[in-house]
Amino acid sequence: MKLPIVTLKKGEGRMLKAGGLWIYDNEIATVSQDTINGGLVCVQDFDGYALGTGFYNNHSKITIRMMTRDKNGEVDQDFLRRRVETAWAYRKKTVDTSSCRLIFGEADFLPGIIIDKFSDVLVVQSLALGIDKMKGDILRLLLEALEKDGVSIRGIYERSDAKVREQEGMERVKGFLSEPFDTKVEITENGVKYIVDVEDGQKTGFFLDQKYNRAAIHKLCSGAEVLDCFTHTGSFALNAGIAGAKSVLGVDASQLAVDQATQNAKLNGIENVVRFQCEDVFELLPRLEAEGRKFDVIILDPPAFTKSRSSIKNAVKGYREINLRAMKLIKDGGFLATCSCSHFMSYDLFTQTIGQAAKNVHKRLRQVEYRTQSPDHPILWAADESYYLKFYIFQVCKNP
């Protein structure tokens, strides 16, 4: 099938040629008259050289998202089946698949779609018009791949209610893509049980990207007094409790999150060790310092303080403040687990910000380890947007 042609300006497409998957509106010279939003196009360089196939949407600054670099490749059912089967085969090799991210957009060469598996339920988030048109086929092919391995799925829920859809000229939608089912889904991760609210929880219901980072704190938390800041539904706090912590305090500004975290603690039978309170962390940390409180382990897992380049300066202030305050509250020789989930807070900037905080409070940091997101959220080199989570564990010491 002959596709409409989009031609790039001379000297543009540098990100694409370096391995990226996006083409922005200001890189495009000409567009065929038969091009439709959400439809596939053949991308050509200024001199007519074919660069591959992607889907087009002039409502979005990311006007083309590439599906393949194969200039002769056809994006059909067989193509989608290969993509889906490759994504599933990768997860089987790299992660515990009882609950995991099955499709991670660009990093699985299916740009704009996320599919998470929570036990026997799938949650899909479609964020781009072109892939939205393929959503039904992708889900059907994924179910077929899972069924071949004896993995049964009892329901599918859509969480395409992210604001970014409006930038694609799409409505925000959520609801069942299967027969209705109980949207409170129980999962087990690292030996910890959770109730995941796939209907009203944040994003797809639960943050799977920290799975192995949560496991990494177990040994540190045995017998420890632990403070978990921005606890959300209690994931790090619960891991600390299961690992044998003496006491755990989880804090979040959302009462709904605190209620869910408390429910999760009861589910695991550790409500006497792990407790939660609703409070602003930025207000709590100075008060704990004034009270002379100290902890063996502090965990900082804040939401993204910046979602654009324009707000990086304020984000740096926020990260520096919470890390500085936490270091003051940690006993000499205790441990700090700290992270950033913002793509725009680069590794270098995050590292520099933590170092500045330590300098300001005259603490020495010994790096225990550095980690990123779980392998079911693969980092695709040359697609910078796929690398977003930075996670450090430090031992915090006085200056000798």
Rank of each mutant, 00 (worst) to 15 (best):
I299P: 06
T306V: 13
S311I: 01
P303R: 10
R320G: 08
I298L: 14
I299T: 01
Y319D: 06
V316M: 05
L300V: 12
K294N: 11
F305G: 10
I298K: 14
E321S: 15
F305H: 04
P303L: 06
D296A: 01
E321W: 12
N314R: 08
P303N: 12
K313G: 12
K294F: 14
A304G: 13
I312A: 10
A304P: 13
P303W: 05
I322P: 09
E321M: 13
A304Q: 11
V297K: 09
E291H: 10
K294V: 15
G292K: 14
K307Q: 14
D296I: 02
A304M: 08
K294M: 15
S311V: 03
Y319K: 04
I312W: 00
S308R: 00
R309F: 07
Y319W: 04
S311K: 00
G292H: 13
Y319P: 08
Y319N: 05
G292V: 09
R309K: 01
I312K: 00
V297E: 01
G318N: 06
V297I: 07
T306P: 06
E291P: 09
K313Q: 10
D301I: 10
S308D: 00
P302Q: 10
S308M: 04
I312V: 15
F305P: 10
D301E: 10
I322S: 12
E321N: 15
P302I: 07
E291N: 11
D296E: 02
F305E: 11
T306H: 01
V297P: 08
L300K: 12
I298R: 14
D301H: 14
I322G: 11
K307A: 13
N314L: 05
A315Q: 05
K307F: 10
V297S: 03
G292Y: 13
K307Y: 09
G292L: 11
R320E: 06
N314V: 02
R320N: 06
S308Q: 00
